[in-house]
């Protein structure tokens, strides 16, 4: 195990941020921590990356005790936060050389590592420019490249693709996959559920300082009933007629949609459509979309307490 946490607690004054968290992250995997704003994701990352200390609980990272050997832990980890931790007054190359010096690499080795990373992250042309002239995606790549100078075995990525365009996001995802292929462990927090779905081997959902679910993306989706077909009507009359005949279902009068629950199999889909055709004979002008449960459903089901969007066509 790369990260083993037992009973991690942290509170700021009376406000309990983490109320006893147990995490197990296997070596060479991508672990995603999901949760609404204020759930304690960033606090967890800050504790695990030695920035702040926990009130209680035991944590071992890369075989070292977090509280007793913080320097050994720091030597094994790399952190790329949602803040951009690059030096704006140094060029891209100088930023990497600074990191190489702080990792006590020899001058020659540092230059070689910097050149390799610039090439790998497609920053060669921008190497002599300052990050102030970089685009958001380039900045994020430089940020990650700086983290990689020290060859960390575990990398914390705190919302790595926030604010990036789709192409840059996919580039970043590919970089992350390549890292894992090299044996690096990734601890990811993200707001984007499709990102966790795309990348993560293991997902934990954090809500109000507690882990409410943990498992692979498929496991999580399976335990949530969210699959349905959605019927889109052209006018309110058609909606009214079908809703009246078919009885109980989720209905949205504003969007003119009806949702019929299914388990996602062809059999249940066919049964629902047959029933629609047979009982109402109103299939003309009705659009159909099939919705399988995704992590959004998991997220809303598990963290549903103050959710104003519940029942809003989901």
């Amino acid at each position: 195990m790369m990260i083993e946490t037992r009973g991690l607690r942290k509170s700021f004054g009376d406000h309990v941020v983490l109320a006893g968290i147990d995490l197990d992250v296997a070596e060479g995997s991508i672990f995603a921590l999901l949760g609404p704003n204020g759930a304690g994701k960033t606090t967890t990352v800050q504790i695990l990356s030695t920035l702040i200390s926990a009130d209680s609980g035991k944590t071992r990272i890369a075989g070292h005790d977090l509280a007793r050997e913080p320097d050994a832990v720091r030597a094994a980890i790399g952190v790329t936060g949602q803040f951009s931790a690059v030096d704006d007054l140094l060029t891209g190359e100088e930023n990497l050389l600074l990191m190489a010096d702080l990792h006590h690499l020899s001058r020659r080795e540092g230059r070689k590592r910097a050149a390799d990373l610039l090439e790998r992250f497609e920053l060669v042309e921008a190497a002599k420019q300052r990050p102030a002239t970089y685009s958001g995606g380039m900045r994020r790549r430089l940020d990650l490249a700086m983290t990689l100078v020290g060859n960390p075995r575990l990398i914390f990525l705190d919302e790595p693709t926030t604010g990036l365009d789709p192409r840059s996001r996919h580039t970043m995802w590919q970089i992350i996959r390549d890292l894992v292929a090299d044996g690096v462990t990734i601890f990811l927090t993200t707001q984007y559920l499709d990102e966790a779905d795309e990348l993560a081997n293991q997902i934990a959902v954090l809500d109000r300082g507690k882990l409410v679910a943990e498992g692979t993306p498929d496991e999580l989706k399976r335990c949530i009933p969210g699959g349905h077909i959605q019927l889109q009507f052209a006018d309110a009359c058609g909606l009214e007629a079908v809703a009246h005949t078919l009885g109980e279902m989720v209905r949205n009068d504003e969007a003119l949609t009806l949702q019929i629950p299914t388990d996602g199999s062809i059999r249940s889909l066919k049964a629902a459509l047959d029933r629609l055709d047979y009982e109402t004979n109103a299939v003309d002008g009705v659009g159909v979309t099939v919705h399988t449960p995704d992590l959004d459903d998991v997220f809303f089901a598990l963290t549903s307490h103050p959710d104003p969007q519940k029942g809003d066509g989901r």
Partner: peptide, 13 residues
């Protein structure tokens, strides 16, 4: 404010 000090704090320096 720029966060580079946060990076330094997570390094074994």
């Amino acid at each position: 404010a720029e966060g580079i000090v946060t990076r330094f704090r997570t390094m074994a320096i």
